[in-house]
């Protein structure tokens, strides 16, 4: 029963990079277990391996060693194509740099992930419009990303991450490029998504942000989990 609740499970995962004769151990023997509906923060200083960890959790990368289960499926053995389908369906990414496609309008950006899942155009339009209204950008659908403020762009990215109704939202330094006030709005939005039942994993270097909002904080250092901190309260 407990196993069913675990949506992401990293078991002794390592990611090494080979640079000539040197081996860079970006992640070295990490165990992370994330349950459905949790708000998890992966924290650590620069070079601690948190971004690599996020890439592995989000199935953007495959580990050198160890296994990763995403919704009970071992992703370390999947083909590139299957991996793409899986991440498109189950993981929504939010990046520090927003990473919107500049040639596409706000609405088209949000429609894009659904296109790769083969949704009909009508369906994609409906969902994109609904999500943009939800993030408060209903009146900016035909704008291009460069016509929006940073906060607005990040909200588009949030809407895009929700396009395929994924179980996991992966946010890599989502407030890194925003001022405090806008950043807070983004965090609030992530929290509300978490309340709706989404599993949110946030990578951050800001200990306050992690401690304040996350249920569990994985602190990384030198590619290893240094500490796991659980918030001492029950969520409803």
């Amino acid at each position: 029963m407990k196993n069913k609740e675990v949506i992401i499970n990293l078991k002794n995962v390592a990611k090494y990079y080979y640079m000539g004769d040197n081996i860079v151990k970006a992640v070295d023997g990490v165990d992370i277990s994330i349950k459905q509906g949790e708000f998890v923060a992966v924290m650590g200083p620069s070079g601690s391996g948190k971004s690599t960890c996020m890439n592995l959790i989000g199935s953007l990368d495959i580990p050198t060693k160890g296994v990763i289960y995403l919704d009970n499926e071992d992703i370390s053995s999947l083909s590139e194509s299957d991996l793409a389908v899986l991440r498109g369906k189950k993981v929504g990414f939010i990046f520090q740099q927003f990473n919107l496609i500049p040639n596409l309008t706000v609405k088209e950006n949000v429609m894009l992930p659904m296109m790769f899942q083969g949704e009909s155009k009508q369906e994609r339009e409906n969902v994109a419009e609904e999500l943009l209204v939800k993030v408060g950008l209903g009146d900016r659908m035909k704008f291009y990303p460069n016509q929006l403020s940073g906060g607005q762009q990040q909200r588009v990215a949030i809407a895009r991450s929700l396009a395929n109704d994924p179980e996991v939202i992966l946010a890599d330094e989502p407030t890194g490029n925003l001022d405090t006030k806008t950043g807070k709005k983004v965090i609030d939005f992530l929290k509300s998504l978490n309340k709706e039942g989404k599993t949110v994993i946030m990578v951050t270097h800001d200990p306050n942000l992690a401690k304040e909002h996350a249920d569990i904080v994985y602190s990384l250092r030198d590619g290893k989990v240094e500490r796991i901190t659980r918030k001492n309260k029950l969520r409803i």
């Binding site: 194509s81 793409a84 919107l100 496609i101 894009l112 790769f116 899942q117 396009a163």
Partner: peptide, 16 residues
């Protein structure tokens, strides 16, 4: 390159 990365992160297969 970055755009390709974004497309892949949101579910685009190599073939696409």
């Amino acid at each position: 390159v970055k755009e390709i990365g974004i497309l892949k992160s949101i579910g685009a297969r190599n073939s696409e």
